[in-house]
Design a protein around this nucleic acid. Structure first.
Lengths: 239, 239
DNA sequence: CCGAAGTGTTCCACTCGGCGAAATGATGTT
DNA sequence: AACATCATTTCGCCGAGTGGAACACTTCGG
């Protein structure tokens, strides 16, 4: 655990936790929920769940549909947008990713470490019909895949890049069927002056197209893109 | 007010409201806040504000930075993504917008009605240096601008399009310096089979480039794009 | 070097707001 | 009509949440 943990004696507020748990039920595949379902999934009695929903609705975090189902509200979207604009990564990363998709014609993703998982922050799909299914906002395990290993091998807050040079020379890291037996990938780190490692840029695709020889061909492109990005964010690595 | 309001006797939970108010302090321009600032802005005593923050942090809604500031957390991002994927509009709307940017070389936005405001859900910028500044997630007033009037003139839930035909024939609606004296725009509605009016597609730009004659030229393109989009969402209008 | 004025955090007694079980409506299904 | 299953309301009890004050720790500037 390289987590920054601050131990406090201040206890959390139960009612708030409950409300947030209700909120967290929602998902890409769970757009609407009825009160009864919410009650069941959270284990709260219905009256409590209803109070939470009323509170959440009052602040526009959820909305009530015509048929008394509950869904996420617009305020959630506003906050979600505010989250990414923090690091104004998107304006830099997104165009670089789009260029990479054009070059490689495979999916390009940008992952960030979130605790002991990693989350897909940005994603640009290739136009192939056959492609892996990861969407922005999804989290996957940290210990598998090229991007996962990139995120674990570099120290979190390290603008000076004290990472072993041997590792640097091996970039980009390659995954042959690690996370999914049918998927290969290669990934390189992106650094910023302020935060050190900010994420991993990765190309991934099915074994059949993203062969080991093709990966060799893509390596310099990924590495150069990641290096250029880092340079624009004020950090330099690899020349 | 065409709002769907459900009156209830169930009262909201104060603690939850307070926590959500803390959350809502954050913004594109307000990325980090200290406990003292949060206490001041919300009017809560510090101990209360701290409890809220601890609770929010426990569920990953906020994160604590190294210097004891608070910022939005990754869970917010996940939920924000889940919000839009609900109506899987994005996969349809985004490409159509990109094409429109190529055709018109002006900014294209997609607005949705949120209560008595309208929110920019998607946005594709032109590559001009001079352009209006609206970002995804921003809300603006409903009663001004071409998109605003589109959203008000069409009944919210109306798959059958009982809107006065006269209005339909006037599409797309045009705004000459309504919302901002220097900005013109034109907008058309997008319907879906399930929800009726889902949003307004709009092109906007400075008076100097988006002249009234250019607007005339763009009208059929916007209208056609909106109609095609609606068709793909299962609703037909304008042929 | 010592206050003064900021931070963030902890402690605690009081009170009132939230809680859950059960009752009541409201719809739909057999 | 009888039965499910839903959302919503009511209400008495009690403990969780509250706010104020005290505490510890920096960072000022005189």
């Amino acid at each position: 655990m390289t987590e920054i943990q601050i131990e406090r004696k201040t206890k959390s507020v139960e009612a708030v936790i409950r409300a947030l748990q209700v909120l967290k039920l929602f998902d890409k595949s769970t757009q609407e929920l009825s009160l009864a379902e919410i009650s069941r999934r959270t284990g709260m009695v219905k009256s409590t769940a209803l109070r939470m929903l009323v509170s959440l609705a009052e602040e526009q975090m959820v909305t009530v549909t015509a048929d008394r189902k509950y869904a996420l509200g617009p305020e959630i979207y506003r906050l979600g947008k505010a989250y990414t604009s923090g690091f104004n990564l998107e304006s830099h990363v997104r165009p670089a990713m789009q260029q990479l998709v054009l070059d490689a014609n495979e999916c390009v993703s940008f992952f960030q470490r979130i605790g002991n998982r990693r989350m897909c922050l940005f994603r640009e799909d290739s136009d192939h019909l056959l492609r892996e299914h990861v969407a922005e906002g999804d989290t996957v395990s940290l210990d598998r895949g090229a991007a996962g290993r990139v995120l674990t091998t570099f120290p979190k807050q390290d603008p000076n890049l004290t990472a072993p040079l041997r590792t640097l020379e091996q970039l980009p890291l390659v995954s042959i069927g690690e996370r999914d037996a049918e998927i290969n990938g290669l990934a390189a780190p992106v650094f910023s002056a302020a935060q050190g490692l900010v994420g991993a840029l990765t190309i991934s695709g099915p074994k059949s197209r993203l062969t080991e020889s093709y990966i060799e061909e893509l390596k310099p492109k990924v590495l150069r893109t990641a290096a250029n990005l880092s340079a624009r964010l004020g950090a330099r690595f690899y020349g």
